[in-house]
């Protein structure tokens, strides 16, 4: 499903971020990507989102080579990905319902489908009662759940979560991780970039450890390694 073949990325400033990465993630897997700051984790996510282009090597997602993808094909490709960030990135001037519906409006989903799917997604993340609330009226955990609902509402095949618990307390962090696990059980491939050692150790998933742009370990049912 996701394949990195000898992928390197050096920024225009000359800073190397990835150095000949080889990686294969199968459909339906739950994978943690861990490592120190500057290890290349976020670059990897940005390459998958087509926010960045690799300096060399090839990336395949669902058998499509990203390097060969034309500009006008990028929106359609991104619709197959869900993405969650550490800082939630919700629209502050819109309520919970509108934030989730926004993801569907953007891709031209008919209004009747939006009216059906948004409440269902709110129930999934446990925020059905708060659909009228604005982001500033929600706790960090609730905001991240809204972000998660927004990422999932278009039923993506792959969910990319970049430090999803970075701004949350342990209780809310676990709630988010349980949700991610639930989503993974429904068939969505989940990639989580994190620093949270306790969660990684407890969940016993595949863990890819990165250091200075290289994969230093890749183990199934593993824990956090420095």
């Amino acid at each position: 499903m996701i394949v990195f073949e000898n992928v390197s990325k050096t920024y225009e400033t000359g800073t190397p971020a990835l150095n000949g990465i080889n990686l294969r993630i199968e459909k339906g897997e739950f994978v943690f990507i861990v490592g120190n700051s500057g290890s290349g984790k976020s670059t990897l996510i940005k390459l998958l989102l087509k926010e960045l282009e690799p300096s060399s090597g090839r990336i395949y997602v669902n058998n499509k080579q990203l390097n060969r993808m034309r500009r006008r094909q990028i929106p359609k490709y991104r619709r197959g990905l869900g993405v969650v960030f550490q800082d939630f990135r919700l629209l502050k001037d819109r309520n919970v319902y509108e934030n989730i519906a926004f993801a569907q409006r953007v891709i031209g989903t008919p209004a009747r489908i939006i009216r059906r799917q948004v409440p269902a997604m709110l129930s999934l993340v446990g925020l059905a009662e708060k659909y009228k609330s604005y982001p500033k009226q929600l706790s960090g955990g609730e905001q991240q759940r809204v972000a998660l609902a927004r990422a999932l509402v278009n039923n993506p095949a792959i969910l990319l979560a970049d430090e999803p618990t970075g701004n949350l307390d342990p209780k809310n962090s676990w709630e988010i991780m349980r949700l991610l696990e639930e989503i993974n059980k429904r068939g969505t491939t989940v990639l989580v970039v994190t620093h949270n050692q306790e969660i990684v150790d407890a969940m016993k998933k595949r863990v890819i450890t990165m250091h200075k742009g290289l994969i230093t370990s890749d183990e199934k049912k593993s824990g956090y390694r420095q």
């Binding site: 929106p75 991104r78 629209l91 926004f102 993801a103």
Partner: peptide
């Protein structure tokens, strides 16, 4: 911010 979210969600340039 809204524009960057739109792009990541898969909005077309025209949208």
């Amino acid at each position: 911010e809204e524009i960057s979210i739109m792009k990541l969600i898969g909005a077309t340039d025209f949208f």
